[in-house]
Design a protein around this nucleic acid. Structure first.
Length: 459
DNA sequence: TGAAATGTTGGGGCG
DNA sequence: ACGCCCCAACATTTC
């Protein structure tokens, strides 16, 4: 095939976790060249050496469909290919005589692959995902922050208030489009059984992300500092899956959030930044303890308890409600995530990696930075982590954050008839069809503290 | 972005 | 009236 020269040379816009048209620097840079743009998404079996979770693929299916429609409205298309992008991208670039643009990723495998490709192709890379890229925030001594608060203070000082590019009205198309897979053939939506029937609250795609942001700013943000801890209310942003696939970027969120509650919310975006910096620094966050002294922790192997946790039948209502919400909807309220994580790690003494893996498969917002970093935070093995001895009491957490029991009632119908006073300790009432606690709280707490002591003694 | 054990204080009942 | 005890309420310490 004859290759176009000079200004006819197309640009491959290689989309990964930046599935949006507004605030997309790689897209804006591609359009600014005046050359034809070929949007490309490559489905790789693995993200950073790790297969995507089933919930992530469910979301990706809808997000790519939405992106394809948004591109067609602008005279463009989305080219779909499947396989190893380290082979596919350079081959397509050569076939089309194209340059390549992308927005950066921060996991070690992706960074290594992308820098190889860059050396081979001379590609253009941009930042769509973070307010502050990992190499831009350093301690006074030039090191990497290990504590969130000083990190976030320093990060905020380097965030630039650059204007945010709107979605282009038109995207220049090539004379001839390369071949594309059909999204339907990828079969990303589950069948036989379709376990996603409870995922209907979500609208993947850039328009859905913008709508969710507006809803949150209007209905949730003012109440966020108090409401964010209340799983029975709906005051959280629910932007995490949109952020994960880059249907919206943190710069857009920051530009939209104003008022006294915005700082509190932006601190959560700050944790996302911090976690991406940790990912960039450590790479194998989901495999290895950041604090290596946890390598000797005496985890228990207990498949029945792990199964009870996954399936929401531990006998502790707040834990079970959270796990059932996750299974049914692909999402769990953040306060409850901390409680179920503490329960798996400390009450059951099961390795945090087991919990991280379950979340990775079932959470729509499963993120290679946030998910392992937050699990390590819960375990005490992470950077600026919760101290190990902070053992949540699931009953007290329920009484404090789900005071009327509305959250438990919604996800555990067997307990719906109980009054608020008893709903977090159903063993004090006459209940059928709901299990007794699989571990005694006081025993489990002491056992966890003893295990921690044992780990420390081994140093 | 804990919880439980332990310590302290102060009001009130009561001998 | 007074001291003693009880125990809530709160504070501190410990894991």
């Amino acid at each position: 095939m004859p290759q176009p020269r000079g200004s006819d040379r197309p640009i491959i816009l290689w989309l990964r976790q930046d599935l949006r048209l507004a605030d997309n620097p790689a897209l804006a840079a591609a359009i600014a060249t005046g050359r034809p743009v070929i949007p490309l998404f490559v489905l790789h079996e693995a993200s950073d050496g790790r297969p995507w979770g089933a919930a992530s693929l469910w979301w990706l299916d809808k997000s790519l469909r939405a992106l394809g429609a948004d591109l067609r409205e602008r005279g463009s298309r989305l080219i779909l290919r499947r396989g190893d992008p380290a082979m596919i991208v350079p081959a397509l670039a050569q076939e089309l005589g194209a340059d390549v643009h992308w927005n950066r990723l921060y996991g070690h495998a992706a960074v290594a692959r992308d820098s190889d490709l860059k050396a081979e192709l001379g590609a253009t890379s941009c930042n769509a995902s973070l307010l502050t890229e990992p190499w831009t925030v350093k301690t006074g001594a030039g090191g990497v922050f290990q504590v969130f608060t000083p990190f976030w203070r320093a990060a905020q000082a380097v965030i630039e208030d650059a204007p945010i590019a709107p979605a282009p009205r038109h995207i220049p198309a090539p004379n001839e489009w390369p071949g594309s897979d059909d999204l339907k053939d990828w079969k990303l939506h589950p069948t036989a059984p379709d376990w996603s029937t409870g995922f209907g609250d979500w609208t993947p795609g850039e328009a859905g992300a913008q709508a969710q942001l507006k809803t949150f700013i209007k209905q949730g943000l003012d109440d966020y500092p108090r409401g964010r801890d209340r799983p029975d209310l709906d005051s959280t942003s629910r932007l995490s899956p949109h952020l994960h696939w880059g249907e919206i970027g943190p710069r857009q969120v920051r530009a939209a959030a104003h008022g006294p509650s915005a700082d509190k919310y932006m601190a959560e975006i700050g944790w996302r930044e911090f976690n991406h910096h940790l990912l960039y620094q450590h790479g194998d966050l989901f495999r290895r303890n950041i604090r290596r002294d946890f390598d000797g922790f005496p985890w228990r192997d207990d498949p029945p308890s792990l199964a009870a946790w996954r399936e929401g039948r531990t006998g502790y209502p707040l834990v079970d409600a959270g796990m059932r919400q996750l299974w049914a909807t692909g999402f769990m309220h953040n306060r409850v995530r901390m409680v179920v994580a503490s329960f798996l790690i400390k009450h059951l003494l099961i390795d945090w990696r087991e919990g991280e893996a379950w979340f990775w498969d079932t959470l729509l917002d499963a993120c290679e930075a946030n998910n392992p970093a937050n699990w390590q935070w819960s375990a005490g093995s992470g950077a600026d982590a919760a101290p190990f001895f902070r053992v949540f009491n699931p009953v007290l957490q329920g009484e404090r954050y789900d005071p009327d029991g509305g959250y438990v009632r919604r996800w555990i119908p067997e307990l719906a008839h109980l009054p608020a006073k008893q709903i977090h300790q159903p063993w004090t009432a006459d209940v059928s069809g709901y299990p007794k606690p699989i571990v005694d709280h006081a025993m489990a707490r002491q056992r966890a503290l003893d295990a921690f002591k044992e780990m420390r003694a081994e140093d």
